[in-house]
Amino acid sequence: MRLNGLKDQIEVETCDLSGSSFEDVNLSGVLFHDVNLSGSSYSDINFSGCSLENLNMSGCSMSKANLSGLQMDDVNLSGASIRSCCLEGMTIDGIEVTALLKSWKAQHGDHKGS
């Protein structure tokens, strides 16, 4: 099925749209609930102002992302790797990360931790 130039709201329930392609589509204000997006690929996506809850992003990779102003609560970051990122103004439990890293490097040298 091909939808081109559709401007109406549609309701999609209990469908298998695996393998579908969406290009140049405005999905602002859309609600996704109980949706399996595993193995999906996203590029040039605007998620600004969105709310993401009860996510399973294990095994995902993210690059060239703007996460400024991001707020994370009750998030499992075990095994996460943060590399080559701007951390200015970032805090963890109220502690400024750049100051924390500066202190750690002063005590342990400027080599990268394992």
Rank of each mutant, 00 (worst) to 15 (best):
L6G: 08
G94I: 11
T14L: 11
N46E: 13
G89E: 07
C60H: 10
S58D: 15
G109Q: 09
L101H: 01
N26G: 13
S41T: 09
E23Q: 04
L67T: 10
D8F: 07
V97A: 01
E88C: 03
A99G: 09
G29D: 03
S40W: 12
N76W: 05
G113T: 00
T98Q: 00
S68W: 11
L17Y: 03
H33T: 09
S78T: 04
F47K: 12
N46G: 15
A99R: 09
I95R: 03
S38C: 10
S21W: 07
F32K: 06
S28V: 11
N46S: 14
T98N: 00
D74L: 06
G79M: 09
N26K: 06
F22V: 13
I82D: 01
K105H: 02
D44V: 06
N54W: 12
W104S: 01
G29S: 10
L87E: 01
D93M: 13
L52K: 10
G89N: 07
G19Q: 10
L55A: 03
G39K: 12
V30F: 09
K112Y: 03
S114V: 15
K64H: 11
D34L: 07
S48D: 11
D44L: 04
G69I: 14
L17P: 08
L17F: 02
N66Q: 06
N66I: 07
E13N: 14
S28G: 12
C15T: 10
G29Y: 08
L101Y: 00
K105L: 01
G49L: 11
A99L: 10
D93Q: 14
V75A: 09
G89M: 15
L27W: 11
M90F: 11
A80H: 07
Q71N: 09
R2I: 01
C60G: 12
V75K: 04
D93S: 14
M72I: 14
M62G: 02
A65G: 12
V25Q: 09
S68M: 10
G29I: 04
S40D: 13
L67S: 07
M57E: 02
Q107G: 01
I82T: 01
I45S: 14
M62Y: 12
E13F: 13
C86K: 09
A99N: 08
K102M: 00
L37N: 06
L77G: 01
N66V: 08
H111D: 06
A106S: 09
M72P: 05
T91K: 02
G49E: 09
E88Q: 00
N54T: 06
V97N: 00
L31S: 03
S38A: 13
G59D: 05
G94E: 06
M90P: 04
C86S: 07
A99H: 10
G49N: 05
I45F: 13
E13L: 13
L52D: 12
G59I: 05
G89C: 13
M72A: 13
I45L: 15
T14P: 05
V97K: 00
S41V: 10
K105P: 03
I45V: 15
I10T: 11
K112F: 08
M1L: 15
N76L: 03
I45M: 14
M72Y: 14
L55Q: 04
S43F: 09
R83I: 08
L87Y: 02
N56C: 06
N46D: 15
C85T: 02
N76F: 02
S21M: 10
S43A: 10
Q71W: 13
V12C: 14
G59C: 07
I82Y: 01
S84P: 04
E96T: 05
N36A: 10
W104E: 01
D16N: 11
G39P: 14
H108T: 02
S114L: 14
